[in-house]
Amino acid sequence: MKAFDYAAPASLPEAVGLLASQPAARLLAGGTDLLVQLRSGRKQADVVIDVKKIPELNEITLAPDHSLTIGAAVPCYRLTDHPAIRTHYPALAEVASWIGGTPIQGRASLGGNLCNSAPSADSIPLLIALSASAHLIGPAGRRSVPVEAFCTAPGRNQLAPGELLVAIHIPAPAPHSGAAYLRFIPRNEMDIAVVGAGASLTLANGLIAAARLALSSVAPTPLFVPAAGESLIGQAPTPAALEAAAQLAQAAASPISDMRGSAAYRRHLCAVMARRALELALARAQESK
C-alpha cells in the first residue's frame, strides 16, 4: 500500500476545508471497503481523512414522528442493537446485521455502504424503498439527494469534489406500512448479494396505497424500479399482484455474468427475491399499526 498521511478532523467545517485542500484525499469511516481498496491498489490516497471524530456523523436521531437520521459514520451494530430501530425499522436492523460479519459491523456504516456505491450494496435497495435521502455538505454548502439518484455508476456517485456525506435521512413511515430487504447469497454469511431486493409497502383500507421496490447486483447501480411499485397501487395485496410487480422488477434488470453468478441466474433470482421481499414487507405492513 502506498504511503499516505492521516487526519482526523473534529468538526464538519474542518473536514470540508481539509477535503477541499487535498485533491487526493479519501474519507475513512469504518474502512472496511477503503482499506481493502487501498491495499489492493484499486484506489490511491495521499491523505486519509478519518471522519469518525465528527460528532454529527456519529449521531442517530429518531424523531417523535419516527423519522430517522443516521450519521454517515454510525457503525452498523448501533442500528442492529438500537431497540427503537428494531421496533420501527426491523428491515434496517436486519440489513445492518448482514453487512459483513460481527467484527465488520463494529466498523462498517450505512454511510460507507452508500458512498462506496457498489451495485451490490445491501443497504441501498432498502434505503430506496424507504424513500431515504442523502444529506451532503461541501464547499457550496449543504444539499440533499434522494438515495435512488445518488449512485451513478459502479463506485461512482453524486458527491462533488470536496463534498461529503453527513447523514442519511429516512422520512417517517406511514401507518400500516412495512419494509424488507432480502438477498440471495450461496453461503449464509460473508457473501456479496447475487441479487438483493428491497421493498416497502403501505396499506390503506385493505388496498396497497404505496409501494417501492429496488434491486441490487443487477445493474451498474442499485436499481430503483418505480414501475414495480406503481403497479401495486390501488391493488389488493394478492399473490398475483405481488408476482406481477416482481416480474416488472425482473424486466427492468440488466444483470451481467461474473464470478458471483450468471446473467441468466441473476435474472431468474430478480423475480424470486423481489416477490419474497414484497411478501415480507406486506406481512410487516399487515402487522403494523
Binding site: 475513512l28 467484527p103 463494529g106
Partner: peptide
C-alpha cells in the same frame, strides 16, 4: 488481509474488529 477470515480479530474499545481493516493510528 481483507477482513474475511477473522484470524486477526481483536477487541478495540467495546467491539471486536478485524485488525487488518483498522489503521494503527485509529
Amino acid at each position: 488481509g481483507d477482513g474475511n477470515c477473522g484470524s486477526c480479530t481483536v477487541r478495540l474499545g467495546d467491539r471486536i474488529v478485524t485488525s487488518c481493516l483498522v489503521l494503527g493510528v485509529e
